[in-house]
Design a binder for these strands. Structure first.
Length: 576
DNA sequence: GCCGTTTTCGGCCCGACTGTTTTCAGTCG
């Protein structure tokens, strides 16, 4: 069985145990193990065989044997039993704000509630309020919560989160009492999708700031409002939490509210082992508390190098920071240019000139234009004749740059059903580079899809693979494909793989990016821009690269123009 | 279920807020 599926099963077991009111630490062990599996550095069966899995922290003897059983037989009796014994609708109750394992257990035991529908009926019949530990307010909160769960998906795209948080952060920073304010949480870690918005500020007296916050025009509902913390729901039901601390507490609080939860738990455990207690206000030991001006001071006090937010997932970053400074992560400003951009020659909105202009104003020194290929009729794919016309247009435009900027001639060439490409070889040979992507027959069986993309990855005329899994975040799953096999094929052929930086895609994701790097695959950050504004999406791709631990040297498009041009030319010549 | 710089048993990160309570349990992050 596939590693991702095993992780999914373990995580589901954790959740099932939760709603059954099991020991929360036992539940967490399952979630932790699932998380660990997802971030494994190499192939699972390999790691089982050579004993590395058994030595992985968080995988004990019991978990190890469960994973082995799933990996080899594809079945786990404990899982089947758990599913059989737990009403399937019970898990959905966990998503209702204010309902946790304990309350769900009471509802199940006392009122035989097994689903959201049961819960609504009970609430409307006023049967919940009389239960011990419940009350009229809780009942109403549950009814509101059911409507919320039914009307809203639980996560949003990073791009939407940034858009929503910006005016609120600005309003907090504008408040005269506020000294510092930052976005924390999964948004600061640049996670793929965001659950809620977290903002931290410092002030001598946080109360007036919180009072101001809950009255902002963006606020739809106030969920909680205390002297140091307030939670509200804003547009589209997105939750936004604001916390206020004293300025001396800011670094501790910033670290704490940035998370991840798993990282925080590991760091606090480490603090305990060093004779300290860490909370969101201070790091204190027997000799009093340790003053820290920055997060870096906090890490240093625990014997660790600074860990950037993007790496804080407790998947080995703490162990790495123990050994010394972490290798610097790539920055947006390191990018020298990019590939995989569209123009109005196919389905883009801007002209060649406008795209080139926009790239230059972002400080880029080259731009790869990769309009769709001829099969992509829905996206205005270019006929061979149009390709030749575009080449001439690009040549003419390049003349005007005087060598200071260059447009590379590319194509986003469809990978056809059999893994072949959408233009004949002599046309492909005329491009500076070829991005190969799947845009059709998403429903193929896994073996067939894998063979299809592996064939493209091995094609010497393919420079880089575009959005290798085809997923659309919160909208469409990846097509069935063995990504590790694709990475292996790309590594063997020297084919690059893109991080598609569109906030809807982020494909490759950070986890596969790590594996690709480990296999020696060069990564390229591409915005898949369909307008001049789309170039700004590069920043989301840099976020993925950083989460994957990539530095400047791991990316293709962080090299100077001359080197990039030379590398593309070398690869073109190698085809013959 | 995991794990060991007091430990192979008994802990497991820690605090804010709410709503139910007459001092705290549950939830959340």
């Amino acid at each position: 069985m596939e590693t991702a599926r095993i992780a999914q099963i373990l995580s589901e077991m954790g959740t099932l145990l939760e709603v059954r009111g099991e020991n929360p630490f036992r539940c967490r062990a399952y979630h932790n193990a699932a998380q660990t599996l997802k971030g494994l550095p190499s192939d699972l069966s390999e790691m089982i065989a050579d004993g590395r899995l058994a030595e992985t922290p968080g995988i004990g003897t019991t978990m190890f044997s469960k994973i082995v059983q799933l990996a080899t037989t594809g079945h786990l009796p404990a899982y089947d039993d758990l599913r059989r014994a737990t009403p399937p609708g019970l898990v959905a109750l966990l998503r209702v704000p204010g309902l946790g394992p304990k309350k769900i257990k009471v509802l199940h035991d006392e009122l035989k509630i097994e689903s959201l529908a049961d819960l609504r009926v009970a609430g409307e019949a006023k049967m919940i309020a009389p239960l011990k530990g419940f009350g009229a307010k809780t009942e109403q909160k549950i009814l509101d919560g059911i409507s919320f769960v039914e009307s809203v998906g639980d996560r949003i795209l990073q791009s939407k989160a940034r858009r929503l948080v910006a005016p609120i952060l600005e309003a907090i920073r504008q408040h005269p009492l506020v000294l510092r304010a930052e976005v924390c949480g999964s948004l600061r870690r640049r996670a793929e999708t965001i659950g809620d918005l977290d903002i931290l500020f410092s002030a001598e007296n946080p109360v007036p700031v919180l009072d101001h916050f809950v009255k902002l025009p963006e606020v739809a509902t106030v969920l909680a409002h205390g002297p140091t913390k307030a939670s509200v729901r804003i547009a589209d039901g997105v939750q936004c939490d604001l916390r206020g601390v004293e300025d001396s507490q800011f670094p501790f609080a910033l670290h704490y509210f940035t998370g991840s939860k798993a990282h925080n738990i590991a760091i606090r455990r480490r603090a305990l082992a060093h004779g300290y207690s860490l909370n969101e206000y201070s790091l204190s030991g027997e000799k009093g508390s340790v003053a820290c001006k920055t997060e870096a001071d906090l890490f240093a006090a625990l014997g660790l190098a600074y860990i950037p937010p993007e790496l804080r997932e407790d998947v080995g970053e703490i162990e790495a920071a123990e050994k010394g400074p972490l290798p610097p992560l790539v920055e947006l400003s390191d990018l020298t240019g990019t590939f995989h951009c569209h123009t109005d020659w196919s389905d883009g909105q801007a002209t060649l000139e406008e795209m080139a202009q926009a790239a230059q104003s972002l400080g880029l020194t080259y731009l790869g234009i990769a309009d769709h290929s001829r099969s992509a009729g829905y996206a205005g794919g270019l006929s061979i004749e149009r390709v030749r016309q575009q080449w001439a247009a690009i040549d003419a435009l390049n003349e005007t740059f005087g060598g200071k900027f260059r447009i590379f001639k590319g194509t986003e060439c469809d990978i056809l059903g059999d893994g072949s490409l959408d233009y004949p070889d002599e046309i492909l040979d005329g491009f500076d580079y070829v991005v190969a992507s799947v845009h059709s027959s998403f429903g193929m069986p896994r073996d067939e899809m894998t063979a299809r993309i592996v064939r493209a990855a091995a094609n010497p005329r393919v420079t880089m693979l575009g959005h290798p899994t085809g997923r659309l975040l919160l909208a469409r799953d990846a097509y069935a494909v063995d990504v590790d096999a694709v990475i292996e094929a790309a590594a063997k052929a020297g084919t690059m793989i893109e991080i598609n930086a569109s906030p809807h895609r982020l494909d490759l994701d950070d986890i596969h990016c790590r594996r690709a790097k480990a296999q020696g695959v060069t990564i390229v950050v591409n915005p898949d821009a369909h307008s001049t504004g789309g170039l700004a999406d590069l920043d989301y791709g840099v976020g993925v690269a950083r989460r994957a631990g990539l530095g400047v040297a791991d990316l293709f498009n962080s090299a100077p123009l001359a080197k990039v041009a030379e590398a593309l030319e070398r690869r073109r010549k190698a085809r013959h």
